[in-house]
Amino acid sequence: MFGRRTAVITGASSGIGAGLARHSAGLGMKLVLADIAAERLAEFAGELSATGAEVTAVVTGVADPASVEALADTAYTLPRTPSGRCPQARSTCW
């Protein structure tokens, strides 16, 4: 059911965002992970990729409109475009 969907998750490398990313990966969703902490984001994206998840990591500062625009551009260029939106704490998936 969720295998054809894409989750875009901000604050993805720790806390609630990481939990949402793990859960979404478990549902078979493609992931676009965003966080301002580049090293931590790359490490976490690698961890999820090693489990077979399809992951794209984008260093993003949500306070910077250009950074958020770049995140959206990345998400919408993927074969499966984001669908739906589920905001929670520091993370959002479209």
Rank of each mutant, 00 (worst) to 15 (best):
C93D: 07
R85P: 00
A75F: 01
T51N: 11
M29K: 07
S83I: 06
D73S: 13
G17P: 00
D64G: 13
K30N: 04
G15F: 13
L31W: 07
T74M: 09
L41M: 05
G19A: 14
A25G: 06
I16Y: 06
A66K: 12
K30L: 00
A37W: 07
P82G: 04
E69R: 15
A89F: 12
S67I: 10
R4W: 00
T77G: 13
A53S: 06
A53T: 03
R40C: 00
G46N: 10
P65Q: 11
V68L: 10
E47R: 03
I9Q: 02
L33S: 06
M29F: 01
G28Y: 03
T10D: 02
T81E: 13
G3M: 12
G19Y: 08
T10A: 04
Q88T: 12
E69Q: 15
E47W: 05
R4V: 03
T10Q: 09
A37N: 15
M29S: 00
G46I: 14
T6N: 01
A57I: 08
D35Q: 11
A7F: 03
G19E: 06
P82K: 05
R4E: 06
A57M: 09
T60H: 01
C93K: 07
I9M: 03
T81N: 08
S13K: 11
A75Y: 00
L33F: 09
S14C: 13
E54R: 04
G17R: 07
G11A: 12
S13W: 06
R40F: 04
C93I: 13
A38K: 15
L48H: 01
A21F: 04
V68F: 07
L20G: 02
P65K: 08
H23K: 13
V8C: 02
L78T: 05
S24N: 09
S91L: 03
V59Y: 04
A66R: 13
W94C: 11
R80M: 10
V8D: 01
A25N: 06
M29A: 08
M1K: 00
A72Q: 09
G26H: 13
